[in-house]
């Protein structure tokens, strides 16, 4: 009888857990962010960002990074100016990773004069390996006068998951 009661308690708790996690997965207002959580086995993170190519009078601000974000600020002075940043992603964990998703989105009200291109990091990243990708921002050479807005925010999401 006691055993039956315990199974019941355990079953109920599991049900609550599954329900709450399921709720979290499907609730539309919930913000699922792609940041890597620290884990004893998994550790894919950004380990460097640097300005690798400067064209024209462009000035590269000091870029910074955390394990899951890389930030840079570039000053583009005249049409044709461009800066390329190289971001290094490293698999420090014990699990082989594969690229699941790459999404680059522009923030609202960004300058139309600033255009960007990017390369993708390696599709597979074995444990211990590293890969790089580049983001290039360019002051559109076809602009002849200074646009009203001179800044733009670009957010890139690079998502690695376990390779099968």
């Amino acid at each position: 009888m006691k055993n039956g009661k315990n199974i019941l308690i355990a079953g109920l708790l599991v049900a609550i857990m599954v329900m709450s996690v399921g709720y979290a997965a499907f609730a539309s207002q919930l913000n699922l962010n792609g940041t890597t959580t620290i884990d004893g086995e998994w550790d894919v993170e950004i380990t460097a960002i640097k300005a690798s190519n400067v064209t024209g009078d462009a000035v590269a601000g000091t870029p910074s990074y955390t394990a899951s974000t890389a930030t840079f600020n570039a000053t583009l002075k005249k049409p044709g100016d461009a800066i390329t940043y190289t971001v290094t992603v490293e698999n420090k964990g014990n699990i082989d990773a594969k690229l699941n998703d790459t999404v680059f989105t522009e923030g609202a009200n960004g300058s139309p004069a600033i255009v960007y291109t990017h390369t993708d990091p390696a599709a597979t990243l074995a444990a211990g390996d590293s890969t790089t990708f580049t983001v290039t921002t360019t002051y559109d050479a076809s602009y002849t006068e200074t646009p009203a807005i001179t800044t733009k925010t670009i957010t890139g999401l690079i998502e690695y998951v376990q390779a099968d």
Binding site: I16, A25, L32, G34, D39, A97, Q162
Partner: peptide
């Protein structure tokens, strides 16, 4: 423990599991 751990996601946010 598992219940508390997963429900902490409601405070700190959730992220997709990276495990296959």
């Amino acid at each position: 423990y598992i219940l508390i751990y997963f429900n902490l996601g409601f405070v700190f946010g959730f992220s997709k599991s990276h495990f296959s």
